[in-house]
């Protein structure tokens, strides 16, 4: 596989940010991008924070191939996202605050200005087998048709973007909004002003 240094650099930076932000364990999470009818995706079991060129695996965009022997467990979720949405890059991470809120809410309504501007609300979906790729491959793509990021209850987020950096912004932005919402809820006090009601987020 030919992997140019510039492309690899994107993987390396994004992987490191996700690890440094503690969105994943040492080995969890996966990131990918579309590339000429192929998917470039992290190797299964490789450490996102310390990616080497050989940790990027190439697999076919349209059909399953033997690249699955090496590529991420969630490869097929990524593939279905690419085949069913406008995604050019996909990140899967285990953002702690998004996961926490997914355990108690059906959607994450953004309270902060940045979140309101970027996402308004972040959908939460539930699947029978949250740790496996099969259910997620079916349920996640329809959500990403209309949202940049979705939370799978008790599991983590799948975010899309035009580039890996773009998808990264969605992952970090959603987590920021989830964190602010979580701490706000923790105070137990009513909001002085609830923008979500004014702007009809529930209908978004």
């Amino acid at each position: 596989m030919n992997l140019d240094p510039e492309t690899f650099k994107q993987f390396k930076i994004v992987g490191k940010v996700l690890t440094d932000h503690r969105y994943n364990t040492s080995h969890s999470g996966n990131i990918s991008m579309r590339a000429g009818g192929k998917i470039l995706i992290k190797r299964r079991g490789a450490m996102l924070g310390f990616l080497e060129p050989e940790d990027i695996i190439e697999t076919d965009l349209y059909t399953q191939d033997s690249g699955i022997m090496l590529s991420s467990t969630e490869t097929n979720v990524h593939r279905q996202i690419y085949l069913n949405t406008d995604a050019m890059a996909v990140i899967h991470a285990h953002n702690p605050f998004c996961v926490i809120l997914s355990l108690i809410e059906d959607e994450i309504t953004c309270l902060d200005a940045e979140g309101i501007y970027m996402y308004r609300k972040i959908p939460v979906i539930e699947v029978d087998n949250p740790a496996g790729p099969t259910d997620a491959a079916r349920e996640v793509p329809p959500m990403l048709k209309n949202y940049p990021i979705v939370v799978v209850r008790a599991h983590g987020v799948f975010a899309k973007g035009n580039t890996l950096y773009d998808a990264l912004q969605n992952v970090t932005g959603a987590e920021q909004s989830a964190m602010l919402r979580y701490y706000t809820m923790l105070t137990g006090k009513p909001l002085k002003r609830d923008f979500s009601k004014e702007k009809f987020f529930s209908e978004w």
Binding site: R44, M69, T73, N129, A131, P133, T134
Partner: peptide, 10 residues
Amino acid sequence: IKVVPITSQG
């Protein structure tokens, strides 16, 4: 077994 790509897909 159904989750791991080597056994479930490859």
